[in-house]
Amino acid sequence: MHEYSVATEIYEVILKTAIKNDAKKVTSVDLELGELTHINHDQLIFCLEIMVKGSLMEDAKINLIVKPPKVKCKCGYEGVLDDNRRLLISDFAFSMGCPGCGNPVPSLISGKEINVRNIKIELDDYV
């Protein structure tokens, strides 16, 4: 629902970084998106593609890195929820129990990112 405003923030951050580094253009963007955010990935990319027209990042390739939910538990388990649990994503509140001990509320350490990790930019060659 708020994909457009999230896309705006992503766009502004990239543009600011590009300008600060004297970029001629942005060629690629690595964007991490957690599976548990309430963001529709396709819609977000769609908004970005529309937004970048005519800008430094018009031709940038957006590399989407989907981050699965990762938990840390009192029992010592630290890792990604296993596939059986993740398959139940529409029901994920039930399925987020610790794969190690079954504790229903391990801490979530990853899976809620909307993170611009890095960008590749083109610079003018120094003569």
Binding site: N115, R117, L123
Partner: peptide, 16 residues
């Protein structure tokens, strides 16, 4: 023309 990689690390939800 040369290409460089720039680290950004800006998480929209973390910023909030």
């Amino acid at each position: 023309m040369c290409e460089i990689e720039v680290e950004v690390v800006h998480d929209v939800l973390k910023a909030n």
